[in-house]
């Protein structure tokens, strides 16, 4: 980040230029990127009649709390169940992804073998090939995993592996091989080398992956739509979709729901803002 600011030595010290460009960009960014979020927030606190006008008029009465309660208690507290399910799926899938992808990335980077070509081809195929939906359902049914939370976790792992492996592989290349060799000479078994020496050193990229993957999985709509139907399996994004028809005349509740669904990513973003950008770019460009 500091490197960015140091990049362009100024030609002449024109003082007004950065200010004018910045202010102009800020004005445009406000309209383009802030106004839509203000719109969501504003509708969420209006009453039903005001919200149906879909405008920026000041609410005639504030009922944020009541809207909040209405959305939460809708259909027998479906949203709370959805938060629970989404959290279980996200935590489970991300934990598995981290360990499994790091193991693959580690051996893939360290060991020269004929397998590497095949593994890399499969990893890249995973980035490119769209998942075959109905055959996947068929396989899940065969394994007894269709419509189950663990099935959903494993699907998210399968779909997230390629990206995670690539990121780990690129990062492991920057860790000196002498480190694992020292541990091996001290008599460490492969698993010990990996869990005690390598995995702790992967922390920066692990944090990035946790952030990126947990947001992606929490926000995922398509996969739960296909592989996790059923009322008791509802996830956060699906509540929005399920409520859409029901709330078509209650835009205030729909947008309160949007607002509530946006809060977890917002929290993650506030805490890991720099980390996301730094880690993302490290992997993406070296890739």
């Amino acid at each position: 980040m500091t490197a960015m600011s140091a990049r362009r030595p100024r030609r002449r010290p024109t003082k007004w230029r950065p200010i004018v460009t910045g202010a102009l960009a800020m004005a445009v960014a406000f309209v383009v990127f802030v106004v839509p979020f203000l719109f969501i927030a504003l509708q969420a606190v209006k009453n039903r009649r005001d919200a149906s006008r879909l405008n920026f008029a000041w609410p005639s009465e504030w009922q944020a709390w009541q809207n909040f309660r209405d959305v939460i208690s809708e259909r027998n507290y479906m949203l709370l169940l959805a938060y629970f399910n989404s959290t279980v799926i996200t935590v489970g899938a991300v934990a598995l992804l981290i360990v499994l992808a790091a193991m693959v990335g580690y051996v893939l980077q360290r060991r020269r073998s004929r397998l590497n070509g095949i593994v890399m081809a499969l990893v890249l195929a995973g980035l490119m090939i769209p998942p075959a939906v109905v055959p996947t359902i068929w396989v899940l049914q065969g394994l007894g995993l269709f419509k189950t939370i663990h099935g959903m976790i494993l699907i998210q792992v399968a779909y997230g592996l390629s990206f995670s492996v690539l990121l780990y592989r690129a990062f492991i290349a920057t860790i000196p091989k002498e480190l694992d060799e020292a541990a091996i000479i001290d008599g460490a078994k492969p698993l010990q080398v990996f869990f005690r020496v390598i995995l702790p050193l992967l922390r920066p990229v692990t944090v990035t992956l946790i952030v990126v993957q947990s947001i992606a999985i929490f926000n995922d709509f398509t996969n739960p739509l296909y592989y996790l139907p059923g009322r008791e399996n509802v996830t956060v994004q699906l509540t929005l979709y399920n409520f859409q028809s029901q709330f078509s005349s209650q835009m205030n509740l729909l947008f309160m729901n949007v607002l509530l669904v946006t809060i977890p990513p917002l929290i993650v973003f506030i805490f890991f803002n720099r980390q996301i950008v730094a880690g993302m770019t490290a992997g993406a460009v070296k890739g």
């Binding site: 598995l96 499969l122 995973g126 090939i129 075959a132 055959p135 068929w138 494993l154």
Partner: peptide, 12 residues
């Protein structure tokens, strides 16, 4: 995991 839930369905 990858083989069962991604490759197998793709081939199938």
């Amino acid at each position: 995991i990858y083989g069962a839930l991604f490759l197998l369905p793709t081939v199938a």
